[in-house]
Computed example of a mutant assay.
Amino acid sequence: MKTKILIIGPSWVGDMVMSQSLYITLRELNPNCLIDVLAPAWCRPVLERMPEVNEALEMPFGHGEFNLSGRWKLGKSLKSNDYTHAFVLPRSAKSAFIPFFAGVPNRTGWKGEMRYGLLNDIRADRTVFQYMVERYVGLAYPKEVMMDKTEFRTIKHPSLRVDEDNQTDCLKRFNISDTPIVGICPGAEFGPAKRWPEAHYTKVAETLIREGNQVLLFGGPKDNDVAQLIKGALPEELKERCFNLAGETSLVDAVDLLAACHTVFSNDSGLMHVAAAVGANIVAIYGSSSPKYTPPLSENVQMVNTDIACRPCFKRECPLNHLKCLTELSVEHVIKAYRDLPQLGH
């Protein structure tokens, strides 16, 4: 009987990218398996760039929406797909209903909200693994050998396919030349406690442009104002080499444009993980979060943070109202990290 796997995917861009390491592992363990991923509609462009994924299925419910009857109908509609295994990556009870209603015989996930019965292969304590990607990949193995088989340094990193034709079209659309390109991702959907100050990013952008680079500012519509502040604060003669793309590209276009950058400076955000998965060098800037939990999965990374006593707090907003974990992380520190990237040959 062919192994057919249903993944209940995460709802954040970065988590979805990191989950590819699980799909790679599942295919290594069973090369002929089929993997379908049920996830929000916005995930489809990312999932379609993962060669391990057979089909991206749309999760029709909003984040946090319970809708038990809707989940029952969706589960019943998937029953005819004859899935043999399901892996439920979110920890909520509602995320486990769909494979249960679909009659998937083997349903694996970490212990969460009242999921006994909904899952029949429950892993008790996710904190046995330090990194989120380990918690995903560990589910691929039987619980008896999970700890022995899952090791951070041997996990295969996400690798998103790049569409070079679309990349060329995007560069032409925004009048970006073929001189070296650096990306900056100044936003963070999680909250302000992850966002390095825009004035600091402006100084980084100025330094990079004066060294002969073009700078692309990435993000969603909510990041457009911050990106415009960065560009607007540049000396007038440098502005034509800085491109505010925040809110101007689809996610799939951002994937291909990030792949055109030799280096990407980013807060701890979904786009940071996308940039790592398309092979860019990464300077990862951490405020309230920690590289000891969700580092960019690449060999070509420099991670920077302050060492003040209150971080990491993992809060969306600074509980002490000072954001020193970000404001006291100097431009000089970040530029030094950039120059220390081995791929740049400085």
Rank of each mutant, 00 (worst) to 15 (best):
K2I: 06
I7P: 01
W12T: 08
M18A: 02
E28D: 14
E28N: 13
P31W: 12
D36N: 13
L38K: 06
R44P: 00
R44F: 04
P45R: 06
M50N: 01
V53L: 06
V53R: 00
N54M: 08
E58N: 12
E58L: 08
M59P: 00
K76R: 15
K76Q: 14
S77V: 01
K79C: 02
N81G: 01
D82F: 11
A96T: 10
A96W: 06
F97E: 04
V104A: 09
G109F: 03
G112I: 08
D125A: 05
D125F: 09
T127F: 03
T127Y: 06
Y131A: 04
V137Y: 01
G138P: 01
A140T: 11
M147F: 12
S159D: 12
S159E: 15
S159I: 06
L160K: 02
R161Y: 07
R173S: 10
T179I: 13
G183I: 08
C185A: 15
P186N: 05
K194P: 07
W196C: 04
V204F: 01
A205D: 11
I209M: 07
G212N: 11
K222E: 07
D223Q: 08
N224P: 00
A227C: 15
K231D: 03
E236W: 04
F243A: 03
T249H: 05
L251H: 11
L251W: 09
A254E: 09
A254L: 08
V255K: 10
D256S: 04
L258A: 10
A259N: 05
N267Y: 07
G270M: 02
L271Y: 09
H273F: 05
A276F: 02
A280S: 15
I282E: 05
S288L: 02
P291K: 09
T294D: 03
S298A: 15
V301E: 01
V304G: 02
V304L: 15
C310Q: 11
P312R: 07
C313Q: 07
N321H: 13
K324V: 00
L326P: 03
S330G: 09
V331Q: 02
V331Y: 03
V331D: 03
I335K: 01
P342Q: 12
Q343N: 12
G345H: 10
